[in-house]
Design a protein around this nucleic acid. Structure first.
Lengths: 411, 411
DNA sequence: AATCTATGTTGCATAGCACAACAAAATATC
DNA sequence: GATATTTTGTTGTGCTATGCAACATAGATT
């Protein structure tokens, strides 16, 4: 019923769709002239001009002041186009991550540049949802002057929880939440009437790590976040693939039951705690850090290398299993444990080769080195993505009537 | 560049998009009045009327002659609408499956009804690609009168092979093919200028089993085909998810390495050959068939039950692994081995419960009882789906200019 | 029979795009 | 250096599909 493919185009919709396409093209390619835009969007130069005029009037696009640095060989015949660009500070989006031990907030602008961040320690398990939301919202708004607030166009929350696409948390074991409507709670507290989205932290991280990257714009990206827990997310053609319950890509709970004894899942084999638990047994240091472990691996200390070898094998097994099912184009590793991968890449590759049948291709593996605010950044990106879509607030004139006149089975 | 989301709507595009939406709505809901259609498509009754007029002129839609059977309580106040329906025999699509031991062909109409089928034995491994294609095409066209040929709007091929979305086969181990452009070969042989698509047999089967089913229209469906081999396909929101190499859902090659010794993949644990190999050891019959095995399981013969129990456990393990990654909404089992599932459903459920962590939901499992032409039917459905999309031949007037003026990175 | 309600059709208004023509700004050519 | 060439941005016109409102129609309701 609400199948977007079944919804008709109308007149307003055409313009909306084309304005959105123009904004996305500018976001994706940086700077374009009207004529270049027209070619990319397969429409007439005159239409392109009209659309740009609308967007300029709205303050979202402007003509770039300085000329692009004259790249050698870039001189083309004909009248040069006037470069257009998004106005970065036209609007902004906020993202917060309510973690177990900290809350992080991020402000990004229309160009998805990080404007400011804020990280504070936090004791998740001992604090109620309401208090956590209060804290997160006030942290996010803290550095925003009142005059700027109205330019906020979205608020995203990420947290380690199973939740549906509406932001209803079914279960957050690490925080002790159950059946709370996180997105609603945020909407209630937030002194702004902007769209609010909530998402699982690993999914949000995956969005943040891929959003705007042209590599991830098409194809399948499997993203892994390896900390004490191991989460994951799948990005298909630039969009998060949530699955039925938002659990798609939760690769940490794959069963890697090579060893006899109790079943072990991937998280228990490649997570930070396992590594450090093993490492502590062999390290000479009294309070070894992960950095010490990395150094020991680099120095080829046998005890450390042995731990890393087990890690590499388990990781390889998990990735092969995942790729048998989703056939990814690329794998991106994130989280602090990902720093171990470059040291072990050859071993992981060898294990992959040994495990999987030779006729299967295997995607490239890269490491993501985002800062500590990756998940909050991703939450903010979700709203940037939404703004650059037909669900954008900019087209909210008739959205009020779209209040689902008929029952719909979700998803 | 060719991101469809970046392609602008133009005038022609509006009408095309709305005609397509109308056709899809009629296909999905069967019969609708103009007013109902207008509501579903969120457009004005008058526009709905215009669109229907176009489609009627094209012979694709007609007013239903007999009134719908007066369902009790269905009498509504106001002038009753005139029911519209697709004209089933306005056009048709052909699908062929080039299997290892047989070739099947199917003709379907605009209502995705099967008009005719044709199955012949075939010795795949000993025959060249060209000969196989020749044979398949002539079988498909065999029963079509020449006068009807021009109403053909698409030709689909399915075969057990790894291939890209353009129909370029990388490898077909069972048929001994390598690096052949299957879709091109068919286009060359086919005496029709219609779209040709090729797809892996399991993927095609998955499309056929879900296409037009409202359940599969949204959400994630994991489809398993269990014969001597075990293939699979993933349908997301009604569309096939191919992955990077068309291998998404190839769950048969998941590694289920519980037992020590050589690695065993799922196919080797739950495939028909394994079951029958074990069964032959215990059966009193000299040439036992799968049906005998099913009967023995039903009769609770210990030796058969033991085999089935191993099957159930391996299946459960594979399904849990798959759902950890794609978080399916539903699982559909197909192929002849699927007949074993109803007898073992409780055991499979018990294993699933034992294997996976309790906090994870698990989708429903159903059995698909399509005939033997499922894969050929699916191949034909792919072209039906294409026809009911903006890539439809009906809009080919400008498609010729769309010849990719600039390099594009595929996918 | 009169009223009500929803459908299908028709005429008109409007919005947005394509097209063509033109001025502008650069390179290419002699 | 003057002219031709190429490409860009703009402007005016025409077309097309939708929206809107009015009306006739066909059944149910009273």
């Amino acid at each position: 019923m609400n199948d977007p493919a079944l919804t008709a185009s109308s007149h307003r919709r055409i313009r909306q769709s084309n304005e959105v396409a123009a904004l996305r093209a500018l976001h994706q390619f940086g700077r374009l002239s009207r004529a270049e835009l027209a070619r990319k969007l397969r429409l007439n130069r005159s239409s392109s001009g009209h659309i740009i005029a609308s967007l300029t009037a709205d303050g979202l696009v402007r003509e770039a002041i300085e000329d692009p640095p004259e790249q050698p060989g870039y001189a083309r015949v004909g009248r040069p186009g006037i470069m257009l660009e998004l106005v970065p500070d036209a609007i902004f989006f906020l993202g917060v991550e309510i973690g177990v031990e900290h809350i992080s907030t991020v402000e990004i602008d229309l160009g998805t540049n990080i404007v400011s961040t804020n990280v504070e320690p936090f004791d998740g398990p001992s604090i109620s949802v309401e208090a956590a939301v209060d804290r997160a919202v006030s942290m996010a708004l803290q550095s925003i002057p009142a005059s700027k607030l109205e330019r906020c166009e979205g608020f995203g929350v990420s947290t380690p929880a199973q939740m549906d696409k509406h932001g209803l948390v079914r279960l957050a074991p690490l925080l002790g939440w159950r059946n709370v409507h996180l997105a609603e709670l945020v909407r209630d507290v937030l002194p702004l009437r902007v769209p609010v989205l909530a998402e699982n932290d690993a999914n949000a991280f995956a969005i943040g790590a891929t959003y705007g990257r042209s590599e991830a714009h098409s194809g399948v990206t499997l993203f892994l976040v390896m900390e004490s827990g191991v989460g994951g997310g799948i990005i298909i053609d630039g969009n998060l693939f949530r699955g039925a319950n938002g659990l798609a890509g939760e690769i940490g709970h794959l069963i890697i039951s090579d060893a006899p004894g109790p079943r072990r899942n991937l998280e228990q084999l490649i997570g930070l705690e396992t590594i450090m638990g093993e490492y502590r047994k062999t390290s000479a240091l009294s309070h070894p850090a992960f950095g010490n472990f990395l150094a020991d691996v680099q120095d080829r200390l046998p005890s450390a290398v042995s731990i890393a070898e087990h890690w590499a094998k388990a990781l390889a097994t998990g990735l092969v299993q995942a790729c048998r099912i989703i056939d990814a184009d690329r794998i991106v590793l994130g989280g602090s444990v990902a720093a171990l991968y470059p040291l072990m890449a050859a071993r992981v590759a060898a294990h992959i080769h040994a495990i999987q049948e030779s006729s299967f291709p295997f995607p490239s593996i890269t490491v993501n080195d985002e800062g500590t605010v990756g998940s909050a950044f991703g939450a903010a990106c979700m709203l940037h993505q939404r703004y650059l879509s037909l669900e954008s607030q900019r087209f909210a004139d008739d959205a009020a009537e779209f209040e689902e006149p008929e029952a719909d089975e979700g998803r």
